[in-house]
C-alpha cells in the first residue's frame, strides 16, 4: 500500500510515516506543503492520502477540493487540530473520508488509515479469504488451511495487494507503484522474486494454485485454477 502524508510539521510527518511503514506495511511519500502535496497526489496512484489542514502555500481544504475536482477517488484522512463542528462538516463535504484530531493516538491513526485503505479497495472486513487462504490485514498474518504462513514484509505486501484486487489482473507496474515510494523504478525486477517466494510458501506441496501469472499482463490471485482467465482470453 502506498500512502502520501502531507504535513508541514516535519517531525510529525516522519513519525506518521514511520508508524505507517512499521505497522501497516505501507510505502510512504512525504510532502511538507500544500502545492507539493497536490502535485504528488495527482501524479501517483496512492491508496491513501493523509492530509494536514494548516499547510503553507496551499491549505489542506483547498488541496482536497482540487484533488476531488480532478476525480481522484483515493481515500483522504484529514489530520486537524481544529475540531469545531463546522470545520468537520466542511471537510467531509469537501470530500474527506475521515478525520482525526491532534494530538492523536498513533494506534488509532493506523487503524483508521487501514480501514480507509481497505474500503478504498472495496473490502469491508479486515480479514480477506481467498480459497483456503486467509489474510488478516489488521495483524498482518496469513493462514493457509488454518495454519500460519510466515512471510517476509515485502512478500506480505505483495500478497495483500493481490488479495485486495483478487480475481483481477494486477500489473507489475501497479505492484511497484503501490509497494514502493517515489523511487520505485529502482526495484523493477524484484517483483518476480517476491512472487516466486510467495508461490513456494502458499502453493507448496498441495498442488493447488493461488497466484496465477497472466502472461504479458501481470499477476492474479484466485482460488482455483479453473482455466486461467488470461489464457482463455488469449486462446
Amino acid at each position: 500500500m502506498r500512502v502520501l502524508v502531507v504535513e508541514d510539521e516535519e517531525r510529525l510527518a516522519q513519525n506518521v510515516a514511520r508508524i505507517l511503514r512499521e505497522n501497516a506495511s505501507c510505502a510512504v511519500d512525504l510532502a511538507f506543503d500544500g502545492e507539493e502535496g497536490l502535485f504528488l497526489a495527482k501524479t501517483n496512484p496512492y491508496d491513501l492520502v493523509v492530509l494536514d489542514l494548516m499547510l503553507p502555500k496551499l491549505s489542506g481544504l483547498d488541496l482536497l477540493r482540487r484533488y476531488r475536482k480532478n476525480r481522484h477517488k483515493t481515500p483522504v484522512l484529514v489530520v486537524t487540530a481544529r475540531d469545531e463542528k463546522e470545520s468537520v462538516v466542511e471537510l467531509l463535504n469537501a470530500g474527506a473520508d475521515d478525520y482525526i484530531t491532534k494530538p492523536f493516538d498513533l494506534g488509532e491513526f493506523v487503524a483508521r488509515a487501514k480501514a480507509l485503505i481497505r474500503r478504498g479497495m472495496g473490502d469491508h472486513s479486515s480479514v480477506i479469504e481467498v480459497g483456503n487462504l486467509e489474510l488478516d490485514t489488521s495483524t498482518r498474518r496469513v493462514f493457509k488451511d488454518g495454519e500460519k504462513v510466515v512471510l517476509t514484509a515485502m512478500e506480505y505486501r505483495v500478497l495483500e495487494h493481490l488479495a485486495h484486487k483478487r480475481g483481477g489482473v494486477v500489473t507489475k507496474t501497479e505492484l511497484l507503484e503501490h509497494l514502493y515510494d517515489y523511487n520505485w523504478e529502482k526495484f523493477s525486477n524484484v517483483i518476480e522474486v517476491y512472487v516466486s517466494g510467495l508461490r513456494r510458501k502458499l502453493d507448496g506441496a498441495s498442488g493447488s494454485k493461488l497466484i496465477h501469472t497472466v502472461r504479458g499482463l501481470g499477476y492474479m490471485l484466485q482460488a482455483e485454477d479453473v482455466a486461467t482467465p488470461g489464457k482463455t482470453r488469449r486462446e
Binding site: 510539521e9 517531525r11 513519525n15 487540530a81 481544529r82 484530531t101 491532534k102 494530538p103 493516538d105 498513533l106
Partner: peptide, 23 residues
C-alpha cells in the same frame, strides 16, 4: 482557536514521537 491549534500540534509531535518509539 489559534493557541489551541499551536498547542495541539506541538503536543501531537511529542506524542507521536513517543508512541512511535514505543511501537
Amino acid at each position: 482557536g489559534d493557541a489551541a491549534h499551536e498547542l495541539k500540534t506541538s503536543l501531537a509531535i511529542v506524542k507521536s514521537t513517543l508512541q512511535s518509539l514505543l511501537n
